[in-house]
């Protein structure tokens, strides 16, 4: 059995590196992006192999799905002549020098990894000791929303900043999204699938406290439904002018800060969840985070601001 698993690990690793090389070497940008999506999906298998199911879920939804959709959307914006761009060559000497430099850096990092001790507890033992008081059975969720809630607070902050940046960069003039009517089959698909996706997002959210899953997975899955609605023309691109959407964007951040400050009234430190309330607070925070993450990712996909001052022109190229 171990021999089969080793063969699997070898095939997986070779596939990953070959896909990465393919992404960067393929002449057609469209193919390159498709390979990148396959790379993300293959990464999620690697996460599963390393017992990182939480990461596998996020990678499949975000790394492969959403990043791929973002890239394809941008490629669509960049007009078709951008599709085949011959990469200017650095000349054999230049390429060799670049490869040597990258290879040397790799060897140095590889040597450092090689020197790792075989056994290393890290912070795992401390997480295990305090897991019972975290309010979550899934250690990854416990770390995210309790032990290192600072990280998550800052992360949701990063998401909000990203929305502001994207919004500032691109008033959505010109082509919004494909104006092609979805057709009966796609419309039927969306009609059946989106409600189920909403349910699955709720399920991932619920599961997150004691098994792989949580706000990030749920938010990413919900965002996928939003993107599907967006590209099939079932909903207009988010109108950031609308108070509801602005509210949804900052909902997670505000709730996180509010909870962090509120617990201080009980004599706790900032973001130090009281043991008795931890489970409830985590579930509440995760629910609000899910909504914010989903709306942020959809806005990032839509890739720009639509407002009264810059009404989107019709999709005619």
């Amino acid at each position: 059995m171990t021999a089969i698993l080793w063969a699997f690990d070898v095939v997986l690793a070779v596939t990953l590196v070959a896909l990465a090389a393919g992404v960067l070497a393929t002449a057609s940008l469209f193919r390159s992006i498709v390979l990148f999506i396959v790379f993300g999906l293959t990464m999620s298998i690697a996460w599963a192999r390393l017992d990182a199911v939480d990461l596998g879920l996020v990678e499949a939804a975000v790394g492969a799905g959403l990043t791929g959709a973002l890239l394809l959307n941008t490629l669509g914006h960049m007009r078709s002549q951008a599709e085949f761009t011959p990469e200017p060559s650095h000349g054999p000497g230049g390429r060799l020098a670049l490869a040597l430099a990258a290879g040397t850096a790799g060897l140095a990092i590889g040597a450092a990894v090689w020197a790792w001790p075989d056994a290393f507890a890290g912070l795992g033992d401390r997480v295990d000791t305090h897991l019972a008081e975290s309010g979550a059975q899934n250690p990854v969720t416990a770390v995210l929303l309790n032990f290192r809630a600072y990280d998550t607070l800052l992360e949701i902050g990063v998401l909000v900043v990203a929305v502001v940046a994207v919004w500032a960069l691109s008033p959505m003039r010109g082509r919004v999204l494909d104006a092609d009517p979805p057709g009966l089959v796609l419309a039927g698909f969306v009609h059946l699938l989106v409600p189920v996706v909403v349910l699955v997002a709720g399920y991932l959210l619920w599961m997150g406290t004691d098994a792989p899953g949580g706000a990030f997975q749920a938010g990413a899955v919900l965002a996928a439904a939003g993107v599907l609605l967006l590209i099939t023309g079932r909903v207009a691109p988010p109108q950031l002018q609308a108070i509801v959407e602005r509210g949804a964007v900052v909902l997670g951040l505000v709730a996180f800060l509010a909870v962090g400050v509120a617990v201080m009234a009980g004599g706790h430190a900032f973001l130090e969840l009281p043991d008795a309330w931890a489970t409830t607070l985590i579930l509440l925070l995760e629910s609000l985070l899910t909504i914010s993450i989903a709306i942020v990712l959809v806005i990032l996909f839509a890739g720009g601001r639509t407002d009264a001052a810059h009404p989107p022109e019709d999709a005619a190229p």
């Binding site: 057709g183 089959v185 796609l186 698909f189 699938l193």
Partner: peptide, 16 residues
């Protein structure tokens, strides 16, 4: 069932 739905839809859309 979800995979069936997704793949027949994707199949139709690809062919189309």
């Amino acid at each position: 069932l979800l995979v069936l739905l997704a793949s027949t839809t994707a199949c139709h859309l690809s062919a189309r």
